[in-house]
Amino acid sequence: MKAQWFLALVPAAAIAAFACSGNGDDSLVQGSGNAPPVDHPPIQVQGTSASPRRLSTDQLRASLPIAFGNDATGAPITWKNGANPALSNPGIARSLGEPDYIDTTDEALDPSVLYAKFMDDAARNICGQGLDADATRTDPAQRALLRHVDLADTVESNPAGVDANLRYLKLRFHAVKVAEGDTATVAPLRELFSTVSKASTETDPKAKAREGWNAVCVALVTAPEFNLY
């Protein structure tokens, strides 16, 4: 349990670090919560750019169905808490910073540890839904996540397809356009897919690949590039 908490904190730290890297100030003051590491070289920042901010609850509500498409019944896929949309739960929405204008009046948009924890929960839930929906579709063009691979493809059996799918997912989730010949950008995700697929205890090749893609999907959804803009 302790290990899981620690692991949940790591993406939070990543999000917080990413968020603080361009806070719009002329100079970053060491020692503040936004400071870079003490051995960081001097930073000359033009302080006039837009600052990064994490996704709000409204944005998550509207964006998750865009990222994941519809389930097999045609209903938009979103993060579920039991049978209900988690983001419709007032308690969860408030924990994610949505004000009720009575007890809370500010829309909290800090990339907090609590936010990262919820996004970790969300990713594990919604990625499974997305892959389940894709598994029901024989036409890859109709799939949200596995558009350039067959369900049982591996890095060994279809390296070009896996890379194409990773490039597609980087665009879909992070708005990062990876050039066709660029294999370096997707290399960490390819490694993740491969490692998790191989480590899977499943025996069905489709199920092994599914676990690999699930890991990739969780990585994409919990990444700063998905949660900050």
């Binding site: 692991l7 990413f18 480590a199 699930n214």
Partner: peptide, 17 residues
């Protein structure tokens, strides 16, 4: 599988992003 996933994802996250 969950533990493998939990261990790898943050590392990839940090490296990749």
């Amino acid at each position: 599988t969950f533990l493998v996933l939990a261990a790898i994802v943050p590392v990839v996250l940090l490296r990749a992003h």
